[in-house]
């Protein structure tokens, strides 16, 4: 799996603050597809979080090491068998959901090893993207800075799609924040006006 590097860099830290605001102080966190480790580093700094990043790419593993985080080189598509049940407070999948192949398995694994899951993803139903499609083109934007032929984003999803997915997969949404391209929170018609969605969820308890 190719984690969307350019995408992470361009969207910068816009979802970082939201995530840092949600997690508890001293939380134990697993960051799937941690890239250069800047999210975990941020959470260490502002929340005294502990934990690990998972990354497959050699250069990003090195960058994570230089960033001072604990990084474990692994392919998260292969599952999280190296981690026991409920061993983390939060398992984070930041800007990676749309790029993983085995989406259902990974989300299930997130809620097996973590108490709560946090995902962030670009909303394909954002109005600018809709305009692109109406004009007969695949959307290319700040959130989706790829051409159709080089995109790592193999699953296009929208805010509405994700919520339907949660309902069908035993996931309870605890919090949702939708951001526009400027990083401002969108409360009105988020599936149309929101560029980036950030969710916190856990398991429906029986």
């Amino acid at each position: 799996m190719n984690t969307p590097e350019r995408q992470t860099r361009r969207t910068g830290r816009r979802d970082f603050e939201t995530i840092a605001g949600w997690i508890s102080d001293g939380a134990h966190v697993l960051d799937l597809g941690c890239g250069d480790g800047s999210l975990l580093r941020h959470l260490q700094q502002v929340r005294r979080a502990s934990g690990y990043g998972i990354e497959i790419d050699d250069n990003k593993v090195l960058a994570s090491l230089k960033n001072g985080i604990n990084v474990l080189q692994a392919d998260l598509e292969a599952g999280l068998s190296g981690f026991d049940n409920d061993s983390f407070d939060y398992v984070i999948l930041s800007l990676t959901l749309q790029a993983v192949r085995h989406t259902e398995r990974i989300v299930k694994e997130m809620l097996r090893v973590g108490r709560e899951g946090i995902v962030t993803f670009p909303n394909f139903a954002y109005w600018r993207h809709r305009v692109h499609v109406l004009m007969g083109r695949v959307p290319v934007s700040r959130e989706l800075p790829y051409q159709w032929y080089d995109t790592p984003n193999i699953h296009v999803l929208t805010i509405d799609d994700f919520e339907i997915f949660c309902a069908g997969h035993g996931m309870r949404i605890r919090e949702r924040i939708v951001l526009d391209e400027a990083g401002e929170q969108v409360k009105f018609m988020p599936n149309l006006l929101g560029a980036l969605a950030v969710y916190r969820f856990d398991k429906w308890s029986a």
Binding site: N70, V71, A74
Partner: peptide, 8 residues
């Protein structure tokens, strides 16, 4: 929960 990094 020890601090560990791993590379393959």
């Amino acid at each position: 929960r020890l601090k560990v990094s791993y590379a393959e």
